[in-house]
Design a protein around this nucleic acid. Sequence first.
RNA 1: CGCGGGGUAGAGCAGUUCGGUAGCUCGUCGGGCUCAUAACCCGGAGGUCAAGGGUUCAAAUCCCUUCCCCGCAA
Length: 310
Amino acid sequence: MRIGFFGTPYFAVPSLKMLAGEGYNVVGVFCQPDRKSGRGHKVSFSPIKEKALELGLPVFQFEKIKNPEAVKQIEDLNLDLMVTAAYGQILSQAILDAPKYGCINVHASLLPKYRGAAPIQWAIINGETSTGITTMFTDIGLDTGDMLLKRAVPIGPEETGGELYERLAVLGADVLKDTLEALREGTLVRSPQKEEEASYYPMLTKEMAKLDFTQSAKQLIDRVRALYPIMRCHASLNGEDVKLIQLKSAQTGAKGKPGEVLTADAKQGLIIQTGEGAVETVQIQYPGGKVMEAKASLLGKPIAVGDVFE
RNA sequence: CGCGGGGUAGAGCAGUUCGGUAGCUCGUCGGGCUCAUAACCCGGAGGUCAAGGGUUCAAAUCCCUUCCCCGCAA
């Protein structure tokens, strides 16, 4: 079976590794073009490109996968099956029609809930206690295709987006493996998504990392851990943009308005009033500085009680 | 050559504008006080001020070079 693999970030790596390890015939790996990134604008390869090169697989990178030359390339590969996992571009019907058995996608949620590009982070932001992996036949809609296999996992109460992302990447490879085996054995069952149960969440934007202290303590804590380490949540304090890397709930007798600093010393820590309850900032980062323990930071850079994060 | 911030005691920072004895908070060590404590009081140790070169009577501070860390943007 000739397989074309479409993926870009780390999420897709375990799946590609599994395909190669299980002896599947991956005839082409498609990923997003190399981009200048990081300090100094150095060009870096995506995790999938790195892995594909390591495995000795041919790599294809198209600026727009819908362009005729890209579609022709896919058709010329004479694929039996396409596998996608966080590729990063929307596929066209012509592409989906190219492989004999269609296109199977690995999605990091329990569909039809959390359709969209950032299901992992959104699940944590919304305080979900479980999520999972769904494999599906890709259709022209956004994560709307018929579902194949589904597996759920609990979300830890303090788990970060990065940690869950890693777990789901591994689980995704596992579910994909079972899906392909079922496909070979002819036991694969398609089940349509129920539209009335569907939910869609958009891509993450940097505005989402700006903390709103009128939210409840739990919402703030969930948001900070959901976005970590992709984005570090931040708030403005006395004109400085301060990153609050890790929050936890705090008990204190003091009260204030949302965002107001209730305690700020090395013994009790940095505790901030929210719309509902209070949060302690465990780790903090100032502009130009490294991430540090908030209690240590207060020794050299005090914050006054009554100052307001906004 | 994308833009910017930073490197000072074990930790976190001030001091750099305008060159003139190396400071603060905490920790640590010793002592004291207390029924007692993460409390309080007294005292001590701990720094080639990232590295190299230059200017100067004198450099953490001014000039040049290098190394390392961080944020933004992508």
